[in-house]
Design a protein around this nucleic acid. Sequence first.
DNA 1: AGCTATTTGTCCGTATGTATG
DNA 2: ACATACATACGGACAAATAGC
Lengths: 235, 235
Amino acid sequence: MAKTSVWRSIANALTAEIAAGHYRPGDKLPTEAELASRFGVNRHTVRRALQDMQEQGLTHARRGAGVFVLAEPTDYPIGKRVRFHQNLEAAGRMPAKRILTLQTRPCDKEEAGALQIAAGTPVHVYEGLSLADNIAIAIFRSVFSAERFPGLLGDLDHMKSVTRALAAAGVKDYTRASTRLTAKLATATQALHLNVAEGAPILRTVGINVDPDGCPVEYGHTWFVGDRITLVVEG
Amino acid sequence: MAKTSVWRSIANALTAEIAAGHYRPGDKLPTEAELASRFGVNRHTVRRALQDMQEQGLTHARRGAGVFVLAEPTDYPIGKRVRFHQNLEAAGRMPAKRILTLQTRPCDKEEAGALQIAAGTPVHVYEGLSLADNIAIAIFRSVFSAERFPGLLGDLDHMKSVTRALAAAGVKDYTRASTRLTAKLATATQALHLNVAEGAPILRTVGINVDPDGCPVEYGHTWFVGDRITLVVEG
DNA sequence: AGCTATTTGTCCGTATGTATG
DNA sequence: ACATACATACGGACAAATAGC
């Protein structure tokens, strides 16, 4: 059990209050002095917490004015002409893959919506690390319907390939229906696995793969190390 | 001219020394106390600089051991099957565009290589801000050959559209030949324009647009606000 | 316009905790 | 066990930008 520092717990408390809607985007947070008084700490301890939140893009400080909550992230549609067909296995450049977790659990609402299944339905979750030249390149998480693919977990375990495991389950081909790209900052857990600093730039892709009938088969997240990686896309 | 703080100049000095190869990846930097003595500042001022470098993924501190230089960034090719056809004008969702700079200057080596022209050849540089709902979405920079498009600057100025300006110059259609995606951290200038915190996550795309003959016509960079937007790509 | 109080930014100094070697 | 080195927290002081009068 890691003892959490005071500034980190303050950052968590303020983040939770923003998430709960206590402070809305555009709102001004209490002054550093007020927060220091409220939490019973020195102003610098509050500053450290606010700095952390600012690095995560949650807040923004304006000297002389105050600390303000930034706007909620909004999606930005590029349009139908945009195509981003991503298939890491097809790249032929994935020398190593390390399995972090393989488990079956009830899906949450987001996963249910992506896979078009009922919430709470069991799903297989495959989390792992992609390495190239023994350097961590990305963390990925793939979610599949456990009802549709009963034996997928065992196939993934020894095949270590989503494509081949799906092929064994009868899905000969699948295509990327949609991909969303965002830049994020590395969390502590991600930083640990990817061997980067906490707060390092991360390129996150969220995608849905569908079979030839258009039925979703995989809901995948990938977190690439931003500064260590450039996705080179040739059309 | 903005007065740079002491910790920032220290961070710049150390970053330059790493870039110059004075410290190689894996090397241990001098201790905070030694650096404080060398720069004639308090240890906390050095810490602020080291923290900034760590956030950028340049260094990593291990308590009790020291501060170490991380590995150099490397490119990561995905492969030829990957397609990412991006055209912001085709999205139909770019309500506002603000011109930051319009100028003609000699191109550098990188631009020369991308546009397949000789180094030092004059190029038109179009820098601007993309806004949606009066919120800054991205900074872009487009570079064109000035010899091939003599009157482009004026067209860009009043059309405010790359597509229409190129059409006026005889390029009826152009396609994205390649795009490279990277996650970055916002620089001070970018943070200012995009109204985000310095160090906020930035999604950078670097692309080359070619005419139907395959000849490069535009070399473009775009810096999206990572947390404020998600690139939604539908295939 | 100026002026003033407020608020964040920077820098210093000190002390103590915690992990490393 | 010990010295070293980074992590955290406290305190004070002044500068710089902002907001309100």
